[in-house]
Design a protein around this nucleic acid. Structure first.
Lengths: 342, 342
DNA sequence: TTGAAAGCGCTAACAT
DNA sequence: ATGTTAGCGCTTTCAA
């Protein structure tokens, strides 16, 4: 095993141990340029024996190349983003690029900080959730001269490329389904997040389309913090107390929707005959519930795959030409057991 | 706004724009050393105007200091790890250190790869899940000369420090609770993961302690893939079909436990009188269920906090002295509504 | 196929 | 309070 030195090992150490120039050692370790099989194995042996780990910092500085992709998302607890991430990781797997994740907690200032921090490592690309950013953030991304892909949403002006669904359209689609099924007294429940622009857009899409059908949202409530399942239950109870004649509840995410559903079942209120329900996101986690909540798949995994694909493709070509890709995916409404009235 | 150059901006650009030496610009940007208020603001203005983002790669190389902490976990989909992560982030928040996450998918080879990749960026510390690693991985961590904290588990020999719970003990605690409550026909359900060492240890602790009480596990089943909730339901159905006289079901995680619970309630089987239930992890998500599943809190958040604390403390002192901290947290058994028989 | 020299953009250490 | 010099550990480029 490696003789323990206090100072981390350098190329020079491997060079000396193998009797080969630093340059050639570097070549071997990167599979670059022609190296004879003899020296090759000499170097590899020495490196392994010493336990050498190359210093990417020095490498990156010298080559002006960093194999990192900054991925900036609002939260990890949300279930939604891990799925996007897995799409990204998978796609990047064999490109030599590596995702590095930063979390903003839905705070623009934190987004700015995280972005600054990540850009200062000169990544090969940025994948960032949402289209709404501070001026400073937009400026940084613009100035970085690397591919920037804004994800999840397409309702707005991207800095560069974007991949996502139209949340406004998703809201409209839901509204249409409600009108078709004759629901007229709609309650809405969501998160108390003025900064969750996507939820807001869905809500706007919903109300606008409902209005065209002569229906308006009869009651609404927003929560923050706590277990989503529990909150869904509580809010549903409170709302039906307040507005007993509601015939449909639209939840801004599946977890609170599930909470509401469980509450109604407990109370013996028939779903969807007495009250219809729908959530948003197609959270696989809930597949096991006896009743399938109506929901809308947000194409999370596919968004990750497409976004990573764009970054990979562009960072492969030296000249960061092109750009401005705009990919709109279409969510599917899954009626489940809680939307269509018999 | 910034005049667009093709080459990213350097300190030199700011230096020229502000008429101050590069060194002083560097000082201002890092709040290091004494700088007069006059030059300070001159520099800051110039930097902001140009849209300068420092190059951490160069900085790190020059200073031999990298403010990153490598965090290596098996999965993000697990709900468990995001919580650990949030503990880590929060603790690191004001230390100048930044977590960088790598995911291994429970694969030792991938762990090795991720570790190598991360170590090659010379992070200030490593926080890694589990105590079981390949020889190569252990060697790398040993050779890195930085604080290494292995988390989640304390049953084994850490490379350096460790923070976690004893899963063996957790299994024993559960066994004791079962014996006390007079359960005798125990069924176990878990994930089909030979490499999930912590689940394995819990199972071992359980069976060993049960054996001492003259009870053995009457049936067991393992799953992989799919929605945990749905799997819990299916496995429970299958197991009760096969072994109808079971009086307790122990699930290796809360999600499959919840699936099982919903199934039993649907079938009108009384919990916990006819069949008792318990999961593992204290997943907050499930707080909203009408019946609270017995579970055991794995102190995930606290693990993150303590681990990050160790890294932060040690990377603050130049000499990486000490080390070898071993922090064992104690999980609490939450009986909920599904364990104690009336 | 291999080696030598120069320098990536910054900061430590020493002037002044 | 500010500037100068010399690298950090690699890779690029050019030479042998």
């Amino acid at each position: 095993m490696a003789p323990r030195t206090k100072r981390p090992l350098t190329l020079r150490d491997v060079s000396e141990a193998s009797g080969v120039s630093e340059m050639t050692v570097s070549r071997v370790l990167r599979n670059k340029g022609d190296v004879s099989e003899a020296t090759r194995s000499k170097v590899l042996t020495a490196a392994k024996e010493l336990g050498y780990v190359p210093n990417k910092i020095a490498g990156a500085l010298a080559s002006q190349r960093v194999n990192l992709v900054a991925v900036i998302i609002p939260s990890l607890g949300n279930m939604v983003f891990p799925e996007v991430l897995s799409g990204i990781s998978e796609t990047l797997e064999n490109t030599g690029l590596q995702p590095v994740v930063g979390v903003t907690d839905y705070l623009p200032e934190k987004e700015e900080k995280v972005l600054y921090e990540m850009l200062s490592w000169r990544p090969s690309g940025v994948i960032i959730a949402g289209l709404e950013h501070s001026d400073a953030s937009r400026a940084m991304m613009q100035g970085a001269e690397i591919p920037v892909v804004e994800i999840m949403d397409v309702d707005g002006e991207p800095v560069d490329a974007c991949v996502g669904i139209s949340h406004r359209r998703a809201g409209r689609m839901m509204a249409e389904a409600l009108l078709e099924n004759g629901y007229e007294r709609i309650g809405f429940m969501g998160t108390k997040m003025p900064l969750d622009h996507r939820a807001r857009k869905r809500f706007e899409g919903l109300t606008e389309r409902l209005a065209k059908g002569g229906v308006e949202v009869a009651d609404q409530e927003f929560y923050s913090g706590g277990s989503a399942l529990a909150k869904g239950r509580e809010m549903t109870a409170a709302m039906l107390e307040r507005t007993p004649d509601l015939d449909f509840l639209y939840f801004s995410n599946d977890m609170i929707g599930a909470g509401g559903m469980l509450y109604l079942q407990e109370k013996g209120i028939d779903v969807p005959t007495q009250v219809g329900l729908a959530g948003f996101n197609g959270v696989e986690l809930l597949q096991g519930l006896p009743t399938r909540l109506a929901t809308m798949d947000a194409c999370r995994r596919e968004i990750g795959i497409k976004a990573a694909g764009i970054v990979a493709a562009r960072s492969a070509t030296d000249t960061d030409q092109g750009g401005g890709e705009r990919v709109e995916l279409t969510p599917t409404l899954e009626h489940g057991d809680t939307l269509t009235r018999e």
